[in-house]
Design a protein around this nucleic acid. Structure first.
Length: 289
DNA sequence: CTCCAGGGAGCCT
DNA sequence: AGGCTCCATGGA
């Protein structure tokens, strides 16, 4: 096992590890918390196990490989966060979100697990999405040997494509079970290439992602924002729709496509970042203003 | 009991 | 293109 540290001085602006990993952007990390060791987060990327812990504004890490480059990319540690936040619109609810969440960053997680995660996300609470992603990992993912017992990687499309709809329903996926299987087949057979999608402009890429089953415009936006490093997507989920009604009523245009363009214009140069702050704020604020 | 959760597919006009 | 209806599951 290797260990190391990513110092705060190398990160432009602050970083809140827990909020970033537990705000519904990614479902691929497990939190392990003990009084002796503190709060660690663990994920598996192919055959690499990566563990991180916040310390002194930076990150301690433990891994079976040097994860520094991967972490900097996944957790957006090279982005000048104060610069991003200063571009947010001068709107009361947006400013309230900024005040509450200091070091929230928008992740770029491995795209295939992100795609399946957000297919599962339809009409589900965030804790349950994480539970289902974990169930998929632990039931059908490859085991990677690690310190105190094995850990599980997210199963690849080839594996998921071999599963029956009934096997997926047994995990609690409900009506999303056939979506997962059919999308896995499309990926396995390379009917839709994620690499090609990623090379196209935002709206084209979103349209192409909806060729997967269980992927409409909202899920596609989440995949582009949290898995493919696009800056434009503003996923219009129930929370953001509600925020539009209350705070940006003129952006409501009837259709997803038109409303998406209108709200994007109102959220500054990095709409996806603004959206993530808004979503995290509204979802966790009881007064809901 | 009802209502809701980071929606989308299938089918209708 | 746009509007309906149905879809599993678990928690409040």
């Amino acid at each position: 096992m290797e260990t190391g540290h990513i110092p705060a001085e190398s990160i432009p602006g602050s970083f809140d590890l827990q909020t970033t990993l537990e705000s519904g952007q990614t479902f691929l990390w497990e939190r392990t918390e003990t009084p002796e060791t503190g709060q660690w987060f663990r994920t598996v990327e192919k055959t690499d196990v990566i563990e991180v812990k916040a310390r002194d504004g930076g990150l301690d890490w433990r891994s079976n490989t040097d994860p520094t480059d991967s972490l900097r990319h996944r957790l957006d540690l090279d982005t000048d966060l104060p610069d991003i936040r200063s571009g947010f619109p001068n709107d009361p609810v947006v400013q309230a979100a900024i005040d509450r969440f200091d070091g929230l960053r928008v992740v770029t997680e491995p795209v295939v697990p992100t795609l399946f995660s957000f297919i599962l996300s339809a009409q589900m609470r965030i804790d349950r999405i994480h539970d289902l992603v974990t169930a998929l990992r632990e039931t059908y993912g490859d085991r990677i040997q690690w310190q105190d017992g094995d850990v599980s990687a997210f199963p690849d499309p080839e594996r998921l494509a071999t599963l029956s709809e009934a096997e997926l329903r047994d995990l609690g996926l409900g009506y999303r079970a056939p979506y997962v299987k059919r999308t896995a087949v499309l990926l396995r057979d390379d009917v839709v290439s994620l690499e090609t999608v990623g090379s196209h402009p935002y709206e084209t890429a979103r349209e192409e992602l909806t060729e997967f089953v269980g992927v409409g415009p909202k899920v596609a936006d989440c995949v582009l924002l949290f898995g493919m490093n696009f800056e434009e997507p503003v996923p219009l989920d129930t929370w953001i729709q509600s925020a539009i009604e209350t705070h940006f009523p003129e952006a409501e245009q009837g259709s997803y496509e038109a409303t998406s363009r209108a709200i994007r214009e109102r959220l500054g140069p990095r709409p996806g970042y603004t959206q993530t702050y808004l979503f995290t704020h509204l979802r966790t604020d009881e007064s809901n203003t």
